[in-house]
Amino acid sequence: EVRVRALYDYEGQEHDELSFKAGDELTKMEDEDEQGWCKGRLDNGQVGLYPANYVEAIQ
């Protein structure tokens, strides 16, 4: 698992997508798939998908 930080706001479009604001931190659980989606977990425990290019790894 990798900690990542959102670069942009994202509003989930489907029930299985996460929503977050730029600057939020979350945990990447799985690497992106061929469509460019990652599985992650918000700090509130919600698990879902998000676009991989909306986040950067925290060093």
Rank of each mutant, 00 (worst) to 15 (best):
Y10V: 04
L26P: 01
D24N: 09
G36A: 04
V55I: 03
R5I: 08
V2F: 07
A57N: 13
D31Y: 07
A6S: 03
E25K: 06
V55H: 01
G40E: 02
V4Q: 05
L42D: 11
Q46Y: 10
E34Y: 15
L7K: 13
E32D: 11
Q13V: 08
E30Y: 15
K39Q: 08
K28T: 12
I58Y: 05
I58L: 15
R3I: 05
L49W: 15
G45V: 00
Q46T: 12
D31N: 11
V55Y: 01
Y54W: 03
V2L: 08
Y50F: 12
Q35M: 14
G40M: 00
L42C: 09
V55E: 02
E32W: 10
E25S: 07
N53W: 05
E1G: 09
Y8M: 13
L42H: 11
E56A: 11
E56P: 01
F20N: 01
L42S: 07
D16I: 07
D24Y: 03
S19E: 05
G40H: 00
A6C: 06
T27M: 10
Y50Q: 00
Y54S: 12
N53Y: 09
Q13R: 08
N44H: 07
D24K: 00
Q46I: 07
Y50K: 01
N53I: 15
V4M: 14
E56T: 13
E17N: 04
E11S: 12
K21W: 05
P51K: 15
D16R: 08
K21R: 11
L42A: 11
P51C: 08
D9M: 03
K39D: 02
D33P: 09
D24F: 05
I58T: 04
A52T: 11
V55Q: 02
G12T: 10
R3H: 03
Q59S: 15
R3G: 03
V2I: 13
Q35I: 13
A22M: 07
D9G: 04
A57S: 11
Q13E: 10
T27V: 14
E14C: 07
Y8N: 10
G45N: 11
G45Y: 02
Q13D: 06
Q35R: 14
D16K: 09
A52L: 07
L42R: 08
Q35F: 07
G40S: 00
W37G: 03
M29T: 11
L7G: 03
C38V: 11
A6H: 00
G45K: 10
K28Y: 10
Q35V: 13
Y8L: 12
E25Y: 15
V2S: 15
D16M: 06
G36H: 13
T27R: 05
V47Q: 08
I58P: 15
A6L: 00
K28M: 14
A57Q: 05
E25G: 07
E17Q: 13
G23A: 10
D16L: 09
D31E: 09
K39V: 14
D43W: 13
E30G: 12
H15L: 13
D9S: 07
P51I: 05
Y54V: 10
G12M: 12
V4F: 11
P51G: 02
C38Q: 15
A6Y: 00
Q35K: 15
F20M: 04
L26C: 02
E32K: 09
D43F: 10
E11C: 06
Y10T: 02
G23E: 04
L42E: 02
H15E: 10
N44V: 04
R3P: 02
D31M: 10
I58A: 15
D9H: 04
G23C: 03
K39W: 09
A6P: 01
A52D: 07
V2Q: 05
D31P: 15
G23D: 09
L26W: 13
M29E: 07
S19T: 14
G23S: 06
E25P: 06
D9Q: 02
D43P: 09
C38D: 01
M29D: 04
D33M: 10
G36Q: 04
L18F: 08
L18N: 02
E30R: 15
L18W: 02
G12R: 12
F20W: 00
E56N: 14
D33A: 12
T27K: 04
R41V: 07
G12S: 14
M29I: 15
K21Y: 08
Q46C: 10
G40L: 01
E14Q: 12
L18P: 00
L7Y: 03
L49Q: 03
Q46S: 13
S19Y: 08
V2A: 05
E34A: 12
V55L: 02
R3S: 05
N53T: 11
R5V: 04
G12L: 03
L49P: 04
Q59R: 13
E34R: 07
E56I: 05
G40A: 05
G45S: 05
A22R: 08
C38I: 05
K39P: 03
A57L: 14
E25M: 15
E14N: 11
R3L: 06
A22D: 04
N53P: 12
M29L: 14
E32G: 12
T27I: 13
E56K: 09
E32I: 06
E14G: 15
A52I: 06
Y54T: 11
W37L: 14
E56M: 13
Q59H: 13
A52W: 10
A52C: 10
T27D: 04
L26I: 14
G45C: 04
W37P: 02
Y54H: 11
L7P: 02
E11Q: 11
L18T: 01
V47I: 12
R41F: 04
L18I: 15
E17F: 09
T27H: 11
G40V: 00
Y10H: 07
E25H: 12
E11D: 14
L42W: 00
D24T: 12
L49S: 15
E25D: 04
E1V: 15
D9C: 15
P51Q: 12
Q35P: 09
K39C: 09
E25A: 07
G12W: 01
V47C: 08
A57R: 13
K28D: 01
D24W: 07
E17K: 08
T27G: 04
H15T: 11
G48F: 00
M29P: 01
G45Q: 03
A6T: 04
A22E: 10
L18D: 01
D24E: 12
L18C: 02
W37Y: 00
N53R: 11
